[in-house]
Amino acid sequence: MNKTVTNATEAIKGINDNMVFAFGGFGLCGIPENSISALVKSGVKGLTCISNNAGVDDFGIGLMLHQRQVKKMISSYVGENAEFERQLLSGELLVDLIPQGTLATRLMAAGYGMPAIFTPAGVGTEVAEGKEVRTFNGKEYLMEYAFDVDFAFVKAWKGDTQGNLIFRKTSRNFNPLVAMAGKITIAEVEELVPAGELDPDHIHIPGIYVHRIFQGVDYEKRIEQRTLTPRA
């Protein structure tokens, strides 16, 4: 089944205002740069965006925030972004902060066809407000629902025309989970190869979860905290 499209502009066809989007990446590591650029150009707005972080002022989801395309962010950590802070404090932007493992597992649940999960993260905190608490083996857990994602955007290292994906190092992070969660999942890859070139044993996400795949271009791969060991 050939999932290939030519570029990000073609890949994002069907997006609409007020949809729920999910994005792979941790900080700026492994973010779908090409899809984000296309979304910025598209002018789509009123979005709910599920992403561990919200980018920085001039890169990643920060670019969409700058265009006021985002109505609500669902994230675990949103530092490093002055425009985000301004919109939040002025009430233009809603933000739902949730524990990182809860975020990951709610995406996973969507891809596993499970309506909800139980996690101890947030028990006894404001995260628990309004949520069902269940006790298993003497320990309390919160019930958290699977996400319902219209479009999912991920970045992989290699992919094939069938949509099979392989991620690289810690740029894997949320990408496989976001890929599994989308009603429509769009994957951009650094290297797109014909079906048969990837070893089936090495595939991280099978193409059944991926609806459109394209060869990405001009990756910037910005580093947030360049930290070095001095040479002796």
């Binding site: 597992t105 290292w157 905290q225």
Partner: peptide
Amino acid sequence: EDPDLINAGKQTITTIPGSAFFDSA
């Protein structure tokens, strides 16, 4: 330094013999 290899503080890091990568879930 490798932009695809960071820690949870978003700092560039390296691996050691025996390291393993996995997803956030």
